[in-house]
Design a protein around this nucleic acid. Structure first.
Length: 280
DNA sequence: TCCCAGGCAAGGC
DNA sequence: GCCTTGCATGGG
C-alpha cells in the first residue's frame, strides 16, 4: 500500500470502522469535488480546504492542514451503526441498501459551495456537473498548493452570465449569476442555521435555480438537516419499485419524511446510492 | 436522431 | 395545488 505524504499536513487516523469507506462516501453522489487517485485513495476539496483519504494498516488515514474541519466534515461524532439499525426497522429495503452502502457518511459541506453546486446539478449528469464546477474553481478560485479553492461569494458575484455559459452551465447560467449576487449582497446564509427546516426550505427557494429538490440537498449536505428527502429521478424509481406508487411527484418527499422522520436524509442517501448502482 | 442526466421557472387550468 | 413545456449541453 502506497502512502501519500504531503508537506505541512497533519495526519490523523480513523480506526477501522465498517461505517467509513472512502469510495462510498465520495461516490454516493453527495459531493462533486473529489479525485480518485487509486483504489480507496481520494483527494477531496471543501471550500478552500483539502484532505487526502487513504487506507492504511492503522485505519483510514486523513492528511490535511485542517484537522478539526475534516473531523467535523466527516461527521465523526455520529454513530452510523445506530442509524442503520433504526432505518432497517422502518423499512425492509433499507437492509439491502445500508448493507450495500454501509461506508457512507453524510458530509457536512460548505453551505455556499453546496448551493452553487446543486444549482448546477439540476437536470444534469454527474460528470458534467463535476466538469463545470472544476472550471468554476480553475478560473475563479484561489490557487493553493494542492489545487484551486472554490470561488468566494465576492468573486462569483462579480462575473456575468456569459461566463457561466462559457464554462458549460447552459440555461443555469442566469440562475447562477442571479443567485451569486443575491448571496453576496442581501441574502443572509447565517439566519438559515437558526430556522426550522420548513422555513429554511422556503427561504432557500427564493434563490433562482433552487426548487424543492435542490433546496433539500442544500438542507441535507450544507445545513445538516436530516428531516428532508431530496427527490430526483432516481428516488422516483425507488418509490415506484419498492413503495406505493399513487402519489403525485410533489408529495413523494413528504411520504418519505413521514416514514423516516429525522433519519430521512440518511435513508435517502443509502437508497439513492443503492439504486444507482444496482438498477442502472 | 432521440433519450437521458441528483429539476427549475413560467404559464395554464 | 397539480400538470405541461422549454430549457443548454454532452454522452450513450
Amino acid at each position: 500500500m502506497q502512502l501519500f505524504f504531503l508537506r505541512n499536513m497533519e495526519t490523523f487516523f480513523i480506526k477501522d470502522d465498517v461505517h467509513f469507506n472512502a469510495k462510498d462516501i465520495f461516490e454516493c453522489g453527495q459531493i462533486f469535488r473529489y479525485v480518485k487517485k487509486e483504489e480507496g485513495v481520494y483527494g477531496v476539496f471543501s471550500a478552500d480546504k483539502y484532505a487526502i483519504v487513504s487506507p492504511s494498516p492503522m485505519g483510514w488515514q486523513i492528511q490535511t492542514k485542517d484537522r478539526e474541519y475534516f473531523r467535523h466534515f466527516f461527521d465523526m461524532d455520529t454513530c452510523y451503526g445506530d442509524i442503520i439499525s433504526r432505518l432497517i426497522e422502518l423499512s425492509p429495503i433499507l437492509k439491502e441498501a445500508t448493507e450495500y452502502g454501509k461506508g457512507i457518511r453524510i458530509l457536512k459541506q460548505d453551505l455556499f459551495e453546496t448551493i452553487i453546486s446543486f444549482i448546477i446539478s439540476a437536470n444534469n449528469n454527474i460528470k458534467r456537473i463535476q466538469l463545470i464546477i472544476e472550471k468554476l474553481c480553475l478560473y475563479l478560485g484561489e490557487k493553493t498548493p494542492y489545487g484551486y479553492a472554490f470561488p468566494t461569494k465576492k468573486t462569483l458575484s462579480s462575473v456575468d452570465a456569459a461566463f457561466f455559459r462559457q464554462i458549460g452551465a447552459g440555461y443555469r447560467a442566469d440562475y447562477l449569476q442571479h443567485t451569486a449576487k443575491m448571496l453576496f449582497n442581501d441574502f443572509d446564509l447565517e439566519q438559515l442555521k437558526s430556522m426550522d427546516t420548513a422555513s429554511a426550505r422556503k427561504k432557500l427557494t427564493e434563490l433562482k435555480g433552487v426548487g424543492a429538490k435542490v433546496a433539500d440537498c442544500i438542507l441535507l449536505f450544507g445545513l445538516s438537516r436530516y428531516d428532508v428527502f431530496p427527490v430526483d429521478i432516481w428516488i422516483k424509481k425507488v418509490y415506484h419499485k419498492y413503495y406505493e406508487c399513487g402519489l403525485p411527484h410533489s408529495q413523494i418527499a413528504d411520504f418519505f419524511v413521514n416514514k423516516f422522520q429525522n433519519l430521512s436524509g440518511f435513508a435517502q442517501q443509502y437508497l439513492y446510492y443503492y439504486l444507482r448502482n444496482i438498477d442502472k
